[in-house]
Structures are given as C-alpha cells and as structure tokens.
C-alpha cells in the first residue's frame, strides 16, 4: 500500500497522458481535423463578398427575408444561415422583415418570392448574387 501511495501521483500523470495520447491519435487517424465543416463559415463569407460590396455605404441596418417568410412557415426559418449572414455583413445589423429600405433575400431556388415581395414592399429593384442570395432595394421606402 505504501508503494502505491508513493507512486500514485506518477501513475495518475502517466495514465492521463496515455489516455489523451490515445484520444489524440484516434482524432488524427479519423481526420476529424480535416472535416469540410470547418470550411462552412469561410465558404459562406466568400460567397457573400459580392453582396457585401454591393451594399451602399453608411448602412446601419438591412432587412432580411428568407423562404420561411414567403411560405408563411416560421418553423422553417433557418437560424444558422441568419447568423452566418449576420457574421458576414457585419458591421451592418440584420433586421428580420421588410421594414428597411435595403433588404437581403435568402431564398431557395424553387420559391416564387417576387410576387410575395411586391405585395409587401411595392416597387423594388433586385440584384441576384447566386446561391439564392438577392439584394433588394425598395423604390417606395
């Protein structure tokens, strides 16, 4: 027992190191660190670059609408894409809805949003940036 007590601290340290070494080795082999997930934010940021450049200067807020608003299904609101969008367009703050003069549209390709937009904002001009991304400018603010 005395031997165990005397060497317990060494044993704990060695066991901890062995356990994490094994875990890191497994992580390395599984290539979790090479997961394409890590590209998501960078990819999104890159995708938003042309839209960001098209934003007029001096904007504090910009509207945001997505497919869920067109279909009237709030449960389909994509929170992750909203937050990615906010991260990418900072320092402009997103305002969900069509209150603002300038609005970002994030729509699925099969959604007919134009008629919906016309009933909500009246006359508007629109620029498309691919990937379902649009910059909408209300002509009757």
């Amino acid at each position: 027992m005395k031997f165990i007590r005397k060497h317990a601290s060494l044993a704990l340290a060695i066991l901890s190191i062995a356990a994490v070494g094994y875990r890191l080795f497994q992580s390395f082999l599984s290539r979790e660190w090479d997961n394409p997930q890590d590209e998501m934010v960078a990819r999104w940021d890159e995708r938003l670059q042309p839209l960001r450049e098209a934003l007029p200067s001096g904007l504090d807020q910009i509207g945001y609408v997505d497919t869920s608003m067109v279909t009237g299904d709030p449960s389909a609101f994509d929170g992750e894409e909203f937050f990615l969008m906010q991260y990418s367009v900072a320092p402009v703050a997103l305002d969900v809805g069509v209150r603002q003069e300038w609005i970002i549209g994030n729509f699925n390709n099969d959604v007919d949003f134009r008629g919906w937009l016309e009933t909500r904002v009246g006359k508007y001009e629109i620029q498309s940036f691919g990937f379902g991304l649009y910059l909408i400018h209300k002509l009757d603010p």
Binding site: D60, Q61, G79, F82, F83, Q86, Y87, A90, P91, V92, A93, L94, D95, V96
Partner: peptide, 21 residues
Amino acid sequence: VVSRFIYLGGEDWKNTFLRQL
C-alpha cells in the same frame, strides 16, 4: 461577430446592439 462590428464599424460600432436573435 461583435469583434467584426467593432473593428469594421469604425464610429458605427454601436450597430452591434441592433443585432437580433
């Protein structure tokens, strides 16, 4: 995201408090 508002926003950094959700 707040860091981006502060760094990129210049004198408009307080827009960070307009963020929603």
